[in-house]
C-alpha cells in the first residue's frame, strides 16, 4: 500500500518518472551528485521517493525518517534549494519533474542526507527550555491556565525540533555560535507560559552577544518553518522582553 508494488519501471521513462538528483556524501566525506529515476505512479511525497530509491535502486542511500506525518522532525533536507520536510513535501506540488536533494545547510554532513544534529540540541538546551518553578514535588491539582493564557504561547509550543530554521538562517551560516531561531522560539515559549517563573534566567542568557541581537529579521526561519512557529516574530518579542529586563536590572542596581 505504500511505496512498492510488483511491477517494475518499464521503458516509458521520461514522462512517467521524476528525476531525483541527490548530493551524496560517502563515509570518507567525498561528495558527488547522483541521479535516480523514480516512477511517478509509485510515490506521492519526496520521502516516498527516497524510500523507493533506498529499497529498489541503491540501498546505501543514507537518510533519516520515522513518522512520515511531519510530527517527529527527522527528515529535514534541502529540496530544490529550500529546507523542507521530505515526508510532507508532495512532489507534484513542486511543479517540476526534476528534484535536487541536498543535506541541510549549516550542519556538518555525516553521510548523504544525514547531518549532525548534536549542535542543534546543544543550542536548544542553552536557553533553559523548561518550566522553572520552586514548588517541585507531588501535585494533587493542576495550575490554572485559561485558554487565553495558552494562546499567548501556543504557536511557539508547536516546534518539532526539525532544525530547518537553522538551515534557512543566513546568520547561522556565518556565525556558528549564534544560538539560532529554534532555541530562541523555545525561550519565548517558556517565557510566555503563565506557569513559569524563570523568565529572568533565560533573558540573562539570550541577551548576550550570541542571542537575539544577532538576528537581522530577514525572516527566512519563519518561511522555512513547517509548523508556523514564526521564530522571527518570536525573536522580536524576545528583544522587547530583553530590553525591559535590562532596564529593570539597571534600576534595581541603582537602589
Amino acid at each position: 500500500m505504500e511505496t512498492r508494488s510488483k511491477s517494475l519501471l518499464g521503458d516509458k521513462m521520461e514522462k512517467e518518472a521524476y528525476e531525483f538528483s541527490i548530493l551524496r556524501t560517502d563515509a570518507g566525506g567525498k561528495q558527488q551528485y547522483a541521479s535516480y529515476r523514480v516512477p511517478k505512479d509509485r510515490i506521492s511525497t519526496v520521502l516516498e521517493g527516497l524510500q523507493y530509491i533506498e529499497r529498489n535502486i541503491d540501498r546505501s542511500l543514507t537518510v533519516r525518517y520515522s513518522c512520515r506525518m511531519e510530527i517527529c522532525g527527522s527528515c529535514g533536507m534541502e529540496i530544490n534549494g529550500k529546507p523542507r520536510m521530505a515526508c510532507s513535501t508532495i512532489v507534484s506540488k513542486l511543479h517540476t519533474d526534476r528534484l535536487k536533494i541536498e543535506p541541510l545547510k549549516h550542519y556538518r554532513v555525516v553521510r548523504d542526507l544525514v547531518v549532525d544534529m548534536e549542535p542543534f540540541f546543544e543550542k536548544y538546551k542553552e536557553g533553559l527550555p523548561f518550566i522553572i518553578r520552586d514548588d517541585d514535588g507531588v501535585y494533587d491539582s493542576e495550575l490554572k491556565q485559561t485558554p487565553e493564557e495558552f494562546k499567548e504561547y501556543e504557536k511557539y509550543s508547536m516546534c518539532i525540533k526539525c532544525g530547518l530554521c537553522l538551515a534557512a538562517c543566513p546568520i547561522v551560516g556565518t556565525d556558528a555560535d549564534y544560538i539560532g531561531p529554534a532555541a530562541l522560539a523555545g525561550v519565548l515559549r517558556y517565557n510566555l507560559d503563565s506557569r513559569d517563573r524563570g523568565k529572568k534566567y533565560r533573558l540573562d542568557i539570550i541577551n548576550g552577544e550570541e542571542g537575539t541581537s544577532r538576528c537581522h529579521f530577514i525572516g527566512e526561519c519563519t518561511e522555512a518553518c513547517p509548523k508556523d512557529v514564526d521564530p522571527s516574530f518570536a525573536i522580536q518579542l524576545l528583544r522587547v522582553q530583553g530590553l525591559k529586563h535590562e532596564i529593570s536590572r539597571i534600576f534595581r542596581r541603582g537602589d
Binding site: F130, Y139, E142, T146, P147, S157, Y190, D196
Partner: peptide, 22 residues
C-alpha cells in the same frame, strides 16, 4: 492522575475549560 498534574506543572499544555482547569 498525579502524572497529569505533574506534567502540567512541567509545562504540558493540557487543553482547558474556560475557567482554566483541565
Amino acid at each position: 492522575p498525579e502524572q497529569i498534574y505533574t506534567t502540567d506543572h512541567w509545562g504540558c499544555p493540557w487543553s482547558r475549560n474556560a475557567d482554566g482547569m483541565i
